[in-house]
Design a protein around this nucleic acid. Structure first.
Length: 519
RNA sequence: GGGGCGGUAGCUCAGCCGGUCAGAGCAGUGGACUCAUAAUCCAUCGGUCACGGGUUCAAGUCCCGUCCGCCCUACCA
């Protein structure tokens, strides 16, 4: 079904000046689960993440800290962003930094091509400039002045009048691609997902596109515009190109052909850049547009979008230190309908950890391993004659396998987990109904006992495979305890119910130990 | 100002193109069971589907309006 085909997935690249919070980690984890799932389905998978290191903000903070912008970026990448991936257990294939030669050189090639082909022109950017902030302001950032500045627009931060400045800039003819973009959205209704994001994008494009200013000459921390080195490429234009420079654009045609196009996973706040400007850039360069752009929702804390300024920003380690990376991954991807906004609360996290991971899955694994150990001396029994209940479990294993994979292909991560979880619930119910502990008391029921345990053991093996993209650590432990060959990540997830398991179980520590009430 | 999304049981949310749509999980309550991480299983309490109109044989489900919340509004990413 999925053998060999190419699957390339990306996250946005992190702006290194930000502080990592669970929103960043959420995006990473979502893309990682999808990537792992495709990889385990036998696809030629590539997952990319990285960092965006150019721009005035970084130059400014680096200067303020007395180091070069490159040194500043190096430090943030090493201290904050690479560690974030470890914290939430992301298995990316590549990590691109926009300051790497493979990126900068090919951004220039791309830009030169667009320039040569007439998609870029020289224009004049006009905007309100605040001397205090040293940057241009949007009108929404300005307020009416009072007192001596009555009647003038002033900066909301400094309450001083802003100046209307003009600056020579290079512009990309985004507007020339409006019709082709609309045709794209029309032909491929799933190009922008979810539906709500698509509608929003349609609205923007229909209401008209303005050309994008893509260069700056007021600072120099960026990729130089090849035909005019007094300008550097505007940060967004630079950043978006990471998706192709990372897979060989401009220097390795074979690799590029193998990977591109990508499925982009982004937060809905940057949908405009990914679903409108980016495809337009690619069209201009004569390249294929992305496979799709998925805009996920916000994490809400106390009903509002999480943010540092409102002190609702939460560092991922705060969660993983207490519950572990598996729980982090499971919680955000199962509790939130992927694409929708989701509420985060410690109470909800703790409750789901306890009810679903500890009591549901963890305890199931524990009781099955314990009974095989206790009643069969650890030797995995083989099934005898099968009853209707046994066959029903087999059917659910198959259904969970098929449904979860189908959901992943639609990027419905939460549905995939829910489909797999039906097997958790079914197995717990099966054990209660079949009562192997009662069968064990009667030697005459030995065959039935072994059959029940064999069925439960097999179901647990299927679960280990199905949940491995979401719970890599716990399922690896479980796989070992099941005595199954190879690694759980090495098993075909699209055929999880057919996995080859083992012959002897070994002790299994609690997969999700009880956690003392946090906060 | 313009635009988007949302307001469904205590909590978090499903409900696609109108007709068993009034649901799930958690929490609560009652019971069963003991293999297991005081876990599991069964049953059960619980909602004027924000409000007001309208269309229709029939509306959380479509239309209009109101209120409330969040977000976007184009160069900080």
């Amino acid at each position: 079904m999925a053998d060999g085909s190419s699957f390339y997935i990306t996250t946005p690249i992190f702006y290194v000046n930000d502080v990592p919070h669970i929103g960043h980690a959420y995006t990473e984890v979502a893309a990682d689960v999808i990537a792992r799932w495709h990889r385990q389905a036998g696809e030629d998978t590539w997952s990319l993440t990285g960092t965006d290191e150019h721009g005035q903000k970084i130059l400014r903070t680096a200067t303020a800290n007395g180091v070069t912008p490159q040194e500043w970026a190096d430090k943030l990448v090493a201290d904050a962003w690479v560690p974030l991936l470890e914290t939430v257990d992301v298995a990316n294939d590549d990590f691109i930094r926009t300051t790497e030669p493979r990126h900068e050189q090919n951004v220039q090639k791309f830009l030169q091509k667009l320039y040569d082909d007439g998609h870029i022109y020289t224009g004049e950017y006009e905007g309100y400039y605040c001397v205090g902030c040293e940057e241009y302001k949007q009108e929404s950032e300005l307020v009416a002045g009072t007192g001596e500045y009555e009647g003038q627009l002033v900066c909301a931060i400094h309450s001083k009048p802003v100046e209307l400045l003009h600056e020579k800039n290079y512009f990309f003819r985004t507007s020339a691609f409006a019709e082709r973009l609309l045709a794209l959205y029309e032909e491929r209704p799933d190009f922008v997902q979810p539906e709500s994001a698509r509608n929003e994008v349609l609205g923007w494009v229909r209401s008209g596109l303005a050309d994008l200013s893509i260069s700056r000459s007021t600072f120099d921390w960026g990729v130089k515009v090849p035909w005019d080195e007094t300008h550097v490429v505007y940060v967004w234009f630079d950043a978006l190109l990471n998706y192709i420079t990372a897979v060989g654009y401009g220097q390795d045609d074979e690799e590029f052909a193998r990977r591109w196009p990508a499925q982009h996973i982004v937060g809905k706040d940057i949908l405009r850049f990914h679903a409108v400007i980016w495809p337009a850039m690619l069209m201009a360069a004569g390249l294929e547009v992305p496979r799709g752009v998925f805009g996920h929702g916000w994490l809400l804390v106390g009903g509002e979008k999480m943010s540092k300024s409102k002190l609702t920003g939460i560092a991922p380690e705060q969660i993983t230190d207490v519950f572990g990376s598996d729980a982090f991954r499971y919680y955000f991807l199962s509790a939130i309908s992927f694409g929708q906004d989701g509420s985060f609360s410690w109470e909800d996290l703790a409750a789901r950890y306890q009810a679903e991971l500890a009591n549901g899955f963890g305890n199931l694994a524990s009781r099955v391993i314990a009974m095989v150990t206790r009643y069969c001396e650890g030797v995995v029994p083989s099934a005898g004659a099968l009853t209707e209940a046994d066959l029903e479990i087999s059917a659910i294993e198959r259904r969970a396998t098929e449904d979860s994979w189908a959901a992943i292909e639609r990027l419905a991560v939460h549905e995939a987990i829910a489909a797999a979880w039906e097997l958790v619930d079914a197995l717990n119910g099966y054990l209660t109904a079949e009562e192997p502990w009662s069968l064990a008391k009667d030697p005459a029921k030995r065959e039935r006992l072994e059959t029940v345990l064999a069925v439960a053991y097999h179901g647990l093996g299927t679960l280990a495979v199905l949940l491995s993209p979401v719970l890599p650590k716990a399922t690896a432990k479980l796989w070992t305890a099941l005595g199954a060959p190879g690694t759980v990540q090495g098993q075909r997830i699209d055929r999880a119910h057919e996995a080859t398991l083992g012959e002897r179980v070994s002790a299994l520590e609690a997969l999700f130990p009880r956690v003392e009430v946090a906060e």
